[in-house]
Amino acid sequence: MASRAQKMPTGLRILSSAFVTLWLIMAAFPFLWTFWGSFKVELDFFSIADWSYALTGERTKAAYGQPFTGAGYYGAWVQEEFLKNVINTFIVCFFVVLTSLTIGTLGGYALSRSSYRYTFWLLITALIFRAMPPITLVAGYMLPFFEWNLWGILPTTIIVLVAINQPFTLWMLHSFFQNIPKELDESAKVDGCTQFQAFRHVIIPVMWPGVITTGLFSFLLAYNDFAVTSMLLAEENRTMVPQIAAFLGTTYTEGNIMFAVAAVVSATVPLFILVMFFQRQIVGGLTAGAVKG
């Protein structure tokens, strides 16, 4: 119950509403604008003549007879076979999430149930590893991977992303498992279960909320990565993000920039859907990490 003393003066209320509105525009407008612009021709989206062309679609009308066109999407998906990159991205994300959750769950569980001193050092090591910029590690992979012919293929990238993901996964799952009472698996052990059986039959059924949240962040890391995927994948195995960068590098000629715009919008859609369905888990995951610190 807000008492009268806590009620905001009108001026402050208007000010904060205005600020929130401003922030909403800053957060959402760039996406809406790019989405809108992706259905135009380049001369409308990047208008030298008159910025209002981007709204009315003058040049698009002149070229296609209507103010909207799917030419950018056609170019990206059909001409440049963006679908291949999309499939690669989802293969990478699926296996990264699966593997890193499997091994991370085991490791995080062990960390939360062991009271020895080395768990502290392992967590600190993980924190240091978390701080490493991935690109510095990539510099270390190149030569061995070339020598052993591992460079350029999807499995290599998947295992590298899993490893880069581990420190974060461990921290997150460690704090989730600490919130599951120790008495649960200890009583199972008293009943004669081994540690693994206790984990299998008692912990696994109750761990899903934490695992799903951690999985979301693993997915985001794999999906959003640019440093590793652009350096470790051969051209024919590229995922979406390096492919978009490649669009920019090679096709800054007229018209083709719209391929990149269309590809960017296409790559944003899965993230949009993700936030829509898992907003609560993402917020929960962020704050869980912070509270545990």
Binding site: T102, I103, G104, L106, G107, Y109, A110, L111, L122, T125, A126, F129, M132, L137, V138, A139, G140, Y141, I159, V160, V162, A163, I164, Q166, P167, T169, L170, Q195, F196
Partner: peptide, 16 residues
């Protein structure tokens, strides 16, 4: 329990 994740981090973070 910790071996798989330790191996992944050792091979792909510590070794690099």
């Amino acid at each position: 329990f910790f071996l798989p994740t330790a191996a992944a981090m050792f091979l792909f973070i510590a070794m690099p």
